[in-house]
Design a protein around this nucleic acid. Structure first.
Length: 409
RNA sequence: GCCGGGGUAGGGUAGAGGUUAUCCUGUGGCCCUGUGGAGGCUACGAUCCGAGUUCAAUUCUCGGUCCCGGCCCCA
């Protein structure tokens, strides 16, 4: 009997893995160069951590389980809550702002489709301790810079929830979240119907539709006309000026709702083409979550990047290291191992493990597309040298080990 | 949870209610014990699972499962 991998999981073959590791390393480098430090949190957490943040409703989407001590646990479905928990547990008295990033796998019990798996990888950044325009701008600029670094082009949309929240402040909380959902999905017909149903004022209706249909880079004056010059808009405007300084290209969209209630002000999303229905590659904003987990009233800003979606559209290929195959006669196999050890300080070296004859070893080097073959034989050993064969040109020459290292490195 | 399309060797495929299920590729070995890519020989290797219809099912029907895409959801 054969056992298959669980639904929604993937095996990554050597070429896939090399590519993922390569792109991953670029993203890590960008984050580090912006002064962010990587952290690792547990693969599973107490179930409460996530129900606290997202409500009991998410349990249906979790890989949760009861452990042998009767504790309710779950594989992590995301990393913002774990990072907040870590902050509250360990980092509250560290100097602010705290700039953290993570790159881990997450698990959700959902129906797989294009760009959506049950085990998936998330890259993310959390900037904790500052609610200033500069930190909002930096986080957006970092996301933008990171996507550019891996060759992903997308539409960056920035909004601010204060605007629509102000507009809807007279409505019941449940109505507000339904309205926000419809706005986020741009279901204008459904929105119209709902507003009709609840008997919303004409002014509200026209303001709301006016607001969510505004599009583009310079719509702030129109927004101010609708909701007035809110204090949030003053600092939002600063954020946008900073983004111009960073050279970030964006459009404003005050219809972004980002699903959850804990986002307080600035929110942003990045969409890329070529991904089917799941085309959001990045989402983030500023939020107040720490209090929820027992910490103080600390403002934070962060974003998450769906790494698997990035890999779908990322055009980069990792540089291939030169590979070398050591070929020997049985009589000098032990010497060959010695030379291989030396060469392995510089390049990847393969050596025969199947007791193949000379010709088959060479043929193997050819099938794995080796760049070079180093031949160890009696003739070579007598001369105190080795034969280096260039598998592309077919040329070969008798060289010392040092000369070979010189030549191929 | 719902909807649509699929499932034949490791990868790609052909076929067909019937006895030994194609072909390409791959991998191992040999031709060939110091020189690869070609060629020849050889070995390995598949009808997703279960039930039903039938003398006979890989083929038809139903159910399951898995894959792909979409809905819901998207922290």
């Amino acid at each position: 009997m054969t056992v298959n991998k669980p639904r929604g999981t993937r095996d990554f073959l050597p070429a896939d893995t090399a590519r993922r590791r390569y792109v991953e390393s670029i993203m890590r480098d960008v984050a580090r160069n912006w002064g962010y430090s990587e952290i690792i949190t547990p693969t599973f957490e107490h179930l409460d951590l996530f129900t606290l943040k997202s409500g009991e409703g998410i349990v249906g989407e979790l890989y949760n389980f009861t452990d042998k001590g009767g504790r309710e646990m779950t594989l992590r479905p995301e990393l913002t809550a774990p990072v907040m928990r870590l902050y509250v547990n360990e980092l509250q008295s560290f100097p602010k702002p705290l700039k953290l990033f993570y790159f881990e796998n997450c698990f959700r019990y959902e129906r797989p489709q294009k760009g959506r798996f049950r085990e998936f990888w998330q890259f993310g950044v959390e900037l904790i301790g500052s609610g200033k325009p500069d930190s909002d701008a930096e986080v957006i600029a970092l996301a933008d810079s990171m996507l550019k670094a891996v060759g992903v082009k997308g539409d960056l949309k920035i909004g601010n929830l204060a605007v629509i929240r102000t507009l809807l402040s007279g409505l019941e909380p449940e109505i507000v979240s339904t309205v926000m959902r419809l706005v986020d999905k741009k279901e204008y017909a459904g929105l119209e119907g709902l507003l009709e149903e609840i008997g919303a004022e004409e002014q509200l209706k026209s303001d709301l539709f006016h607001l969510i249909k505004l599009e583009g880079r310079y719509i702030l004056p129109d927004v101010k006309e609708i909701v007035g010059n809110l204090p949030e808009l003053v600092s939002f405007e600063k954020t946008l000026k900073l983004l111009d300084a960073y050279g970030v290209d964006y459009t404003l969209d005050f219809g972004i709702a980002r699903g959850l209630d804990y986002y307080t002000g600035m929110v942003f999303e990045v969409y890329a083409e070529g991904l089917g229905a799941q085309k959001q590659v990045c989402g983030g904003g500023s939020y107040q979550l720490i209090k929820l987990f027992g910490g103080g009233d600390v403002p934070s800003t962060g974003f998450g990047i769906g790494f698997d979606r990035i890999m779908e559209i990322c055009p980069l290929t990792p540089p291939a290291p030169k590979t070398l195959v050591m070929i020997s006669k049985p009589s000098v196999h032990l010497e060959a191992i010695n030379f291989a050890n030396e060469l392995r300080k510089y390049v990847p070296v393969h050596i025969d493990l199947m007791e193949r004859n000379f010709k088959a070893q060479l043929s193997y080097a050819n099938t794995i597309n080796a760049d070079y073959v180093v031949i160890v034989g009696e003739k070579e050993l007598e001369a105190g040298k080795l034969t280096l064969r260039d598998m592309v040109s077919g040329e070969q020459e008798l060289l010392t080990l040092e000369e070979i290292i010189e030549k191929i490195c």
